[in-house]
Amino acid sequence: MRFCGSFIIFICILVIFCCGFWGVEGSRWTYVAQSAPIGRTIIVDQSGNGDYTKIQPAINSVPSGNTEWIRIIVRPGTYREKVTITPDKPYIILEGQNRSTTIISGESAGDIVQSATFSTFADNFIAKWIAFENTYNYKNTRTEIKKAVAALIAGDKSAFYHCGFYGVQDTLWDCSGRHFFYDCRIQGAVDFIFGAGQSLYEESYIIVEAEGILGPGYVTAQGRENPNDESGFVFKSCYLRGNGKVYLGRAWRPYSRVLFYDSDLSNVVVPEGWDAWEYNSSVATISFSEHACRGEGSDMSRRVAWQKKLNDSELTELTSLSFIDRGTWLQQQP
């Protein structure tokens, strides 16, 4: 009997290792599938000791309709170029060495699409240890800031690990699709995380650089259009730091949805917390929420009266990985 029991245990372990493994998500056990293999690796090196000296040609080399994960390793340096990943080039991993030493840098403003330093429209994209910046507003007085996008993210199933996003206005256009940001650093002053993405930001630093602008800035401008729209920005276990004053968000669309959960908010947050912008007559449809936050900026005693209080079920739905990861696409990435 002991042999039979040991044999059964052996078979169970073998099945788990062949098919995947069990992992922990919060307090729940979840199945994590074995990650996908990487087909090939491309090296970008400014010094010429790689396959390419710029990033865009390396991306162009990925075949249209690509079906295997391709890793593009970007060696340290500031790459002054606009980079675009078109919809026909999925399964790309863009990997730097460190977000402080591997930087894609642009200087353009005005049109939010054309100004973007980095744009990805393809599904199944990963970025690691790399920074995206738009320096346009750094060289202008803060009373003349313009829309200047550092990164435009419009593909579905996109993940960013240890990345940086630096700008002043409209830094990160979290445009559409399901996105995951882990241990990222996002900097700006006005609407610097905006769009209609369905996104989870976890253990990330949100850095406000609003000192000197006219009036308070805004961290988010979320664009949820209707009650059936699944988009929303969730900040989980994040840190809000910086200078000047900001609202946590303003409603870019009538059903705008943002949640700050278990996050540390500094005194940069204005007491009211949130702004309805053009939707003062219909604040009931806006879902701006805070739960279990701490820090000087977490005092909700003077928040707008229409801030939404979520129930336990709603909180679980929004803060679980399943908010963005139905189908476990995230765990199956390399």
Rank of each mutant, 00 (worst) to 15 (best):
D229I: 12
A154E: 03
F180C: 06
N243Q: 14
S199H: 02
G244E: 02
G188Q: 04
S231Y: 03
V208R: 02
G244S: 10
A210R: 00
F235T: 00
F260L: 10
G223L: 08
R224P: 01
G188Y: 02
F160K: 00
A148F: 05
C184Q: 05
V190C: 00
G155A: 11
E211M: 10
Y255T: 04
A148N: 07
V268F: 11
G217Q: 05
R250I: 06
F180Y: 15
K157P: 00
V270Q: 06
F235G: 01
K146W: 12
F194Y: 05
L214K: 14
N280Y: 10
D170G: 08
Q169T: 13
E202K: 12
V149A: 07
Q222D: 12
F194R: 04
S199A: 13
F233T: 01
L152P: 02
F180P: 02
Y166G: 06
V269W: 07
W173D: 12
K147D: 13
V269L: 09
I207P: 01
A154M: 07
R185P: 02
V258C: 12
K147E: 11
D183M: 12
I153A: 04
T220G: 08
W173T: 08
F192Y: 07
K236V: 09
G242N: 09
Y239V: 10
D264C: 13
Q187F: 07
F160P: 01
L240N: 00
L248I: 08
I153K: 03
S204L: 01
F194E: 03
A189P: 00
G164A: 10
E209D: 15
G249N: 04
E272D: 15
G188I: 05
D262F: 07
A221H: 02
D264W: 12
E202G: 02
P271Y: 12
E230A: 13
A151C: 11
L265S: 04
Y161H: 10
R253I: 03
Y261F: 13
K236N: 12
D275N: 15
E203A: 10
C184N: 06
S263G: 06
G177C: 09
L214C: 08
V208K: 06
T220F: 13
G244Y: 03
S266D: 15
K245I: 09
L240M: 13
R178N: 11
D275L: 06
W252R: 14
L152T: 03
F233L: 08
E202R: 12
W277G: 09
L172T: 01
S199I: 08
G177V: 04
G167E: 03
L259C: 12
D174A: 06
W252H: 14
G212Q: 09
G249D: 05
K147R: 15
D156L: 13
L240W: 01
